Simulated assay, not measured.
Amino acid sequence: MSKLKIGIIGSTGYVGVELIRILLNHDDVELVGLSSTSFEGKGIEEVYGNLYSICSLKCESAEKVIEKSDFLFLALPHGLSEEIASKALSAGKKVVDLGADFRLVNEEAYEKWYGKPFAVKELHGEAVYGLPEFNREKIKEARLIANPGCYPTSISLPLMPLLKKSLVSKKGIVADSKSGVTGAGRGLSLGTHFPECNENFSAYKIGSHRHIPEIEQNLSIAAGEDVPVTFTPHLLPINRGILSTIYCDAVEGVTTEEIHKELSNYYANEPFVKVLPLGEAVALKNVKFSNLCHISVHSDERTKKVIICSTIDNMVKGAAGQAVQNLNIMMGFDEQKGLKLLAPAF
């Protein structure tokens, strides 16, 4: 049986090279095309030394990659994917967009947070939000996937089952998240310059991060009504990983044990979401380099707050790994193909 031909547009960013790392371990696909504006004409092994003698593909134009591929991953900054996705779909290809172009349903919200309207409006009606644990059946039939953002993934997975069952209040939810510096991408900036972030810990984009409308969209869909969230991201002086600490109120009469049981039951058969036993706490090192999300449930008896912690690798379950998970579902492959990745023990 012939392998599915894969192309990556935006292959030399951190997400692009993470896709390469994962796809090279996937038996049912063949990586045939890589595109990069910055490194066109160069071999990918010249850009990333870890690929030396492993992958020798040269970076070429997006048009050439679309032509030779059956399936495209778009690992581009927001605002660049719509027209490329339109060309690929018109050519009969399937697409997973890892940027923000198709994540928001509401055009007004997109224009408010991203500063521009939808460029190819007709595609937004068919794009499927690629959070497999909630949209698996729609993903199976899709030809265009909006891969979720990293922060929204870490916050939506623990909260959506609880809001769907009305176990926690829709008001007063606070999400405090910390991410490694790869979340900012490969481009240079002062905030991710080594002397600025090393031995430092800082909040950024307080109350104004572009993932806020995506988080609220997901939680509102689960709850069946608008759910506002106070979200503050922080930059950790590490390469990868997200730890989100979520504060919320249980609905009257609902115990921490019931919340833990609901999450445990909901994810019992999900290969990539693990709910830890009560009394244990998540740790970044346990999900690093994996497609796993770990969730732990806690309570503050003094304030009557429920505290839920979740961890993901922002480059894997928060980006490239979830994209490959969506590929597997779309193509009818084993959902764990290429993704049986464990975190190193230390």
Rank of each mutant, 00 (worst) to 15 (best):
K340M: 08
D313G: 14
R103W: 11
L57E: 06
C197F: 13
E126M: 10
L339K: 08
G130A: 11
K285V: 09
L236E: 15
G279E: 11
N291P: 15
A323I: 07
R143L: 07
C59L: 10
K64E: 14
E137Q: 12
F134V: 07
K285H: 14
L167Y: 08
K288E: 15
P77M: 08
I84Y: 11
N286Y: 12
L34T: 06
D300E: 13
K288C: 15
P237A: 11
K304V: 02
R240S: 12
G207S: 02
V273Q: 09
G191V: 07
F118D: 06
G338Q: 11
F201I: 00
L236H: 13
E141D: 10
I295T: 12
N200S: 09
E82Q: 03
I246Q: 14
L131Q: 07
K288W: 15
N328S: 12
G187C: 02
I308H: 10
S169N: 07
L284I: 11
K165G: 05
V306Y: 09
Y52G: 09
F346I: 05
L284C: 10
G7D: 07
H124S: 08
A127R: 00
L72M: 00
V47I: 11
S86L: 09
Y266R: 06
I54P: 15
I139D: 12
V254N: 13
V17P: 03
K121T: 14
T230A: 06
S202M: 15
S90K: 10
A184C: 00
L157E: 12
E270W: 15
Y114Q: 04
S299P: 10
E199F: 02
L219A: 10
S208I: 14
N326L: 06
S56P: 02
G92E: 12
H26D: 01
I259C: 11
F231M: 02
E83V: 00
G321I: 07
F194Q: 15
L19Q: 00
F73W: 10
C150N: 14
P148M: 04
L292P: 14
N239M: 05
S35L: 00
P233N: 09
S69T: 02
